[in-house]
Design a protein around this nucleic acid. Structure first.
Lengths: 197, 197
DNA sequence: CCTTTCAATTTACATGATGTCAATTGACAC
DNA sequence: GTGTCAATTGACATCATGTAAATTGAAAGG
């Protein structure tokens, strides 16, 4: 069955790309590396993906399915107050970023040269912003958002605190563990945005 | 006088590069663009600078001189207490980044592919970290550093808050003005690190 | 059995950037 | 004049992405 084989090859490419991006050369991974790892010719990759950018974008989607993002987000939605929600979202994010980091970096690096990559990245980040906005809104509903902030400005800043480069600098550069990152960003977010309990 | 002419050409290249990076195509600026703008051949650029990375690094140094970094840092050192010092450093940074931003971006983008660029960038960022550390240390000397933080962890996080990508996201992405940025990051830094007045 | 179809292969090529090399020009200094 | 040195010109190497065309091989279906 040719279409089943095709799907199979496509998946093999996707998996090979994911593996190389996560464990291998990271953002420096080339199309030929991926082809070799998948056991196909370089041109076969272009048969399934329009461009390097399209492949990277497909890998991120593939990973979301594998990692079960929706499942991981449940505690966030279950939070019973604003403070819990902020903490839950930071905890989700702090556990999630390490798994997508190298792929995210590759996509980020392509933003300058490829419009599709830029759009895909912006879309993912817009989804993260939604999560930030929901947490801030929960605080605000309880009257616990500090008067310095509006919904928008607090969301902007919370979102920036959670950006991938910040995570990168703190964990890769400063040697923070995942737990360190989560606890300290939770602390900062509450100190910044929430009125004392 | 041949050596005077050489210096002159070198300066013209540097200035052309600076102009293109700041006002022109930004990080996408090519060696040939710079040569054309300086009115010399592309190869003449390589006569003065080993590589694109070396040229970018030279541009940042050139800009520090032009922008008078030391002068701008004076208010920071003149601050009479920790809170003032934190605020002064954020104010300095918030006024400084817009001027170096596009050049910084070009250098950042080269980090992956060029070791010299990476080193140069890390060096600049290490200097910024010094500024962060000094401000945090001033707070701590007054017993106003919140007990959640150590000198190191607070410096790490303050430094990350001031990173260029955060500035970029807030000002370019979220539309914050320079004043917005300065005021709000000051607020966040004090809320996070300083015990209430 | 033969033919169509379609994924995949092989090989070659186009492009666009950085960086290298060698021969040449032109001006100024001694 | 002759040597020196910056700069020019033009060709070339390299390395990655992406394109194109001809070919193979296997499965599906009359």
């Amino acid at each position: 069955m040719s279409s089943a084989e095709a799907t199979d090859t496509r998946s093999r490419i996707l998996e090979a790309a994911r593996r190389l991006l996560v464990d291998g050369a990271g953002a420096a991974t080339r199309m030929s590396d991926i082809a070799k790892a998948a056991g196909v010719s370089r041109q076969a990759v272009y048969l399934h993906f329009e461009s390097r950018a399209a492949l990277l974008i497909a890998v991120t989607k593939h990973m979301d399915a594998v990692l079960g993002v929706q499942e991981r987000l449940k505690p966030t939605r279950a939070a019973r107050n604003g403070e819990d929600r902020v903490k839950a979202f930071v905890a989700f994010w702090g556990a999630y970023v390490p798994e997508i980091y190298t792929v995210a970096r590759a996509l980020m690096a392509m933003r300058d040269s490829d419009a599709a990559a830029r759009e895909a990245w912006d879309g993912r980040m817009a989804a993260v912003r939604e999560g930030c906005a929901a947490a801030i809104a929960a605080l605000e509903r309880e009257g616990r958002l500090r008067p310095n902030w509006t919904l928008t400005t607090a969301t902007d800043l919370f979102w920036a605190m959670l950006s991938v480069p910040v995570w990168e600098q703190l964990t890769q550069g400063c040697g923070w563990s995942s737990t360190d990152y989560i606890e300290r960003i939770q602390t900062q977010a509450l100190a910044t945005f929430a009125t004392p309990g």
